[in-house]
Design a protein around this nucleic acid. Sequence first.
DNA 1: TGCTGTGAAACCGTTCACAGCT
DNA 2: AGCTGTGAACGGTTTCACAGCA
Lengths: 214, 214
Amino acid sequence: MSIRARPEAVSEAATHRLSLLLRCLKTLEAERATTTSSRELAERFGLNSAQIRKDLAQFGDFGIRGVGYRVGELRDRLRTVLGLDRTHRLVIVGAGNLGVALADSRNFNGDTFKVVALFDVDGRKIGGKSRTGIPIRDATDLPRIARESEAEIGILAVPVEAAPEAAARLIEAGIQAILNFAPIALGPMPPAVVKNVDLTLFLESLSFQLAGRG
Amino acid sequence: MSIRARPEAVSEAATHRLSLLLRCLKTLEAERATTTSSRELAERFGLNSAQIRKDLAQFGDFGIRGVGYRVGELRDRLRTVLGLDRTHRLVIVGAGNLGVALADSRNFNGDTFKVVALFDVDGRKIGGKSRTGIPIRDATDLPRIARESEAEIGILAVPVEAAPEAAARLIEAGIQAILNFAPIALGPMPPAVVKNVDLTLFLESLSFQLAGRG
DNA sequence: TGCTGTGAAACCGTTCACAGCT
DNA sequence: AGCTGTGAACGGTTTCACAGCA
């Protein structure tokens, strides 16, 4: 029922579980369910019921003892907790295959996330548009455009050599969070939050697991 | 000096650190360094020296007390441990923006990983090629082609609705490991290893961190 | 009754600190 | 002397088990 002050530290694993939980709730809602319980959620989606309760308890008392959770209400609370109750504008640096793929992706273009522009240094690309119509702008205009469009999140989809400098530019442009796809571990760059998504690492991790077999 | 039997369980975090460590060694090698130590590695690359030693100790005694590690030797050992001392062939299901971007990516096309084909159900794409020349084949031919080319790893770059069935097809085709980019948590699908890379989750995680500020 | 919310217990990964080897 | 390899201490996260409330 009641909300709690946000704890100073929440583990990344817990954050991911909350995102996943929100998705589960959307599924239940699509089925017109009005009420659920940590046990039902756990059984249907392969989770742990105690963990669901603990994860939620960090942010408030959202359930009703003896009953469970109201689906619509819990979904709203989770959206608020995760900051998904408003629109986040994105800029993508690097209009190569990956940058354009992300810009046109369904998942990056809903109500909560919106790509405002792609940026590149290649004069042949500048002035063009992605398939879904995201404009490709000159990377030197990034600071101005990022501020004007009030973009908060920057995606790095440039080659590894260009990544550190591009990251520095995003910071200058007032970007608050960076999702880095270049295979280099960017350290924290205050005041922005950095998340590295190293696709090579995932592949090598699979290779490692394959190596542990006949 | 000596190698050890592979432990039954290695944490994912440790695996990622070993991949990163291998990258650091490549850097040192490019600088013609022949010897290094856990302390040097830790200081130069922002790691923890005890953790480096612990991570390595799971697989053998690779160092020399009082001296450190020989760069070339340690790199070779790590490559073996991670299974990167041979070529892994990949198939990519879904020749949309993301699939093609991955197929053409530098990081997915070196000596250790090689994309053999893209697969799609769209007749207009079938028979074509990606920019770097990866052929786009009919998804119904996946089992045959995957076996003929001895592909071990399958990448799922299809829309979320198509992901579960496409995953099942990869298993039928004898694929040993799946890297899933669709925003759905695929459970384990024995005998294959599954790794979910949910880009939406990363974005939502950043959103959450942004929500914890003024 | 049956669920949540939560202390306590178990577990796992990281860090410390040093014995032992070169 | 100096580094590795490792048992022991620590801290954080997950799981358990139940008190307390609808």
